[in-house]
């Protein structure tokens, strides 16, 4: 195992972990968004609630989600290790700081990541925890025609939560942080994997930029939509 642990603790190995876990989380963002878009169905939350019930009960999804939690944890822990090691490697700072040659996002990945993590806690505490462990006191049970098993009415909870302007604001801040985190993280993940090519990198960068704007924006529409429409 020594070669493997040597590799994983080398500077490039650590970067590889950040890159791969980051890319996995990016893919999760897409899946999660597709599911969430069901909130916009004009069916009183039926599709969304059935989907939510499926996602919390299907064994395969459960297995994958354990992986997801692990990767979030790994990405976080590794990111913090990188941050502290890098801070130590730099030693003291310059009296005049230079912000001209690098992007805001690239300089502040750890900070942005911390914001995203904090946002994740709020988000999961509010929805996931209640969905998973909350009893009927937390969420109402509903049944739909053609789907006789009662499911938790997460839709109602979502609508209720997003009537709170403070929570909406917290979401917007969290998603903004995510947008910046992605703006650097997306293309950086490819660079760390060694994928930098004169022909293809501009495309990757373009997709990365589009992704980091469109996806958080799409997520952001949800709280805004509920806040103004309900």
């Amino acid at each position: 195992m020594s070669w493997f642990s040597n590799f994983l603790t080398s500077s490039i190995g650590r970067k590889l972990i950040m890159s791969l876990t980051g890319l996995f989380l990016i893919s999760f963002l897409i899946i999660h968004l597709i599911g969430n878009l069901q909130l916009f169905y004009d069916d009183g939350g039926q599709a969304f609630n059935i989907y939510a019930a499926f996602m919390t009960s299907n064994p395969l999804i459960k297995f994958v989600s354990i992986g997801l939690y692990f990767f979030i944890l790994l990405h976080t822990v590794q990111g913090l290790i990188l941050w502290s090691k890098n801070k130590a490697a730099k030693g003291s700072k310059y009296a005049v700081s230079n912000t001209k040659t690098t992007s805001f996002a690239s300089r502040n990945m750890a900070l942005l990541g911390t914001f995203v993590l904090a946002f994740l806690f709020i988000h999961m505490g509010d929805f996931w925890f209640k969905m998973k462990f909350g009893g009927s006191d937390a969420l109402n049970m509903v049944t739909y025609p053609g789907h006789e098993t009662a499911v938790k009415d997460l839709y109602e909870k979502v609508a209720y939560s997003f009537s709170n302007p403070l929570l909406v604001l917290a979401y917007l801040v969290g998603l903004l942080a995510l947008a910046f985190h992605l703006m650097h993280g997306f293309q950086s993940a490819f660079q760390s994997l060694g994928i930098n090519h004169k022909k293809y990198t501009p495309l990757i960068q373009m997709i990365g930029l589009a992704f980091s704007i469109i996806v958080p924006l799409a997520y952001a529409i949800i709280p805004i939509f509920f806040f103004f429409n309900r």
């Binding site: 500077s11 970067k15 890098n86 690098t102 690239s106 300089r107």
Partner: peptide
């Protein structure tokens, strides 16, 4: 030395 975070500096 620290680790690369692809800032491009």
């Amino acid at each position: 030395f620290g680790m690369c975070s692809n800032t491009g500096a």
